[in-house]
């Protein structure tokens, strides 16, 4: 008869763990080898492992830890930090590359701006021009608020955005006025204006102008070589007095109390940019408007 402990490869393990069946155990205890197994097992259980000083080991480990840099953040968190840093870098780069450069004139100021392609913009008072800081040459676009005179070098694709529509330019000279009134005057070459509201296209050549009356674009002609404001004079033909008052307050640091007058009456004439008294006199007296300066010279009270 083959002994169980030889044929069954987990028999002895189960005997040591005390999980043999009653029948298996009694049969095993009758074998010759049983006493030998029992002695070996009992003596083995009396053995001891090494003595270990846990506290001394803990001190040693703490010592090893102290010489380490402080615990690193987990890998996942570190990866996210890198991703976030890269994203922030990319976004800032995009923002910087996409950022605008803006030139602003205050009350009574004028500024000449020379663009990368050699075009020149004369910016009238209280106006601004903004354009892309980088890669502007790929997409020549500027946004105008107020009034500016453009001298554009030959080339394609120069666009001026205004609140009323886009002005498409070949090589040319023109003036755009986008204030309470709206006006484009072409002094040379060709300009194309697309109305933002109606999407209608207008083509202007030298001596042609567009102006907006009650939200409607009208085409017209004019006769001058350069806008007079460039030489320090504002000239108006059949403009509501409100436009003239606005313009005066862009050139001079003044505001008007216009509560008592009718500002829709039309004015034809001009005023100079370097003499407030003269300017007021030439604009208001012909219209029969009386005026009175307040003590600080900044508010002009009007009367009819």
């Amino acid at each position: 008869m083959t002994e169980h402990y030889n044929s069954d490869d987990t028999f002895l393990a189960r005997w040591m763990a005390g999980t043999l069946s009653e029948a298996e155990r009694t049969a095993f205890e009758k074998t010759d080898a049983y006493k030998q197994f029992r002695l070996i097992n009992e003596e083995s259980q009396k053995l001891e492992g090494p003595e270990i000083d846990v506290e001394a080991a803990l001190k040693q480990v703490k010592l090893k830890i102290e010489t380490l840099p402080k615990p690193k953040r987990s890998k996942v968190i570190r990866i996210w930090y890198s991703v976030a840093a890269a994203a922030i870098l990319l976004i800032s780069l995009a923002v910087i590359l996409n950022s605008d450069q803006t030139y602003v004139t205050g009350i009574g100021e004028k500024q000449n701006i020379t663009l990368q392609d050699g075009s020149v913009i004369n910016l009238n008072a209280n106006s601004s021009i903004s354009l892309k800081r980088f890669f502007w040459m790929h997409d020549k676009m500027v946004t105008l608020k107020g009034e500016g005179y453009f001298t554009i070098k030959e080339g394609t694709g120069f666009i001026v955005n205004t609140s009323k529509g886009a002005v498409n330019v070949l090589g040319t000279e023109f003036n755009i006025r986008d204030r309470s009134d709206f006006e484009i005057k072409c002094y040379g070459g060709t300009v194309q204006f697309s109305d933002l509201n109606t999407s209608q296209m207008y083509t202007l050549t030298k001596g042609m102008q567009l102006h907006m009356e009650n939200g409607v674009i009208k085409e017209d002609t004019f006769n001058e070589d350069a806008p007079s404001w460039k030489t320090g004079i504002s000239t108006f033909i059949d403009k509501p007095i409100s436009v003239i008052l606005d313009e005066l307050s862009y050139i001079y640091p003044i505001t008007f109390d216009r509560s008592t007058i009718n500002t829709n009456r039309l004015f034809t004439g001009s005023f100079v940019h370097d003499d407030l008294k003269n300017a007021l006199h030439t604009t208001l007296v012909p219209m029969g408007i009386g005026y009175q300066m307040t003590a600080n010279n900044h508010v002009i009270v009007l009367s009819e």
């Binding site: 069954d8 030998q36 197994f37 070996i40």
Partner: peptide, 25 residues
């Protein structure tokens, strides 16, 4: 667990093979 039991059994069997002759019955 099965592998552990096999190793346990084999270990005890080998110990007995080595020490059996020392244990006179």
């Amino acid at each position: 667990v099965k592998a552990v039991e096999r190793r346990m059994s084999k270990a005890l069997l080998e110990l007995r093979n080595m020490l059996g002759k020392e244990i006179k019955i």
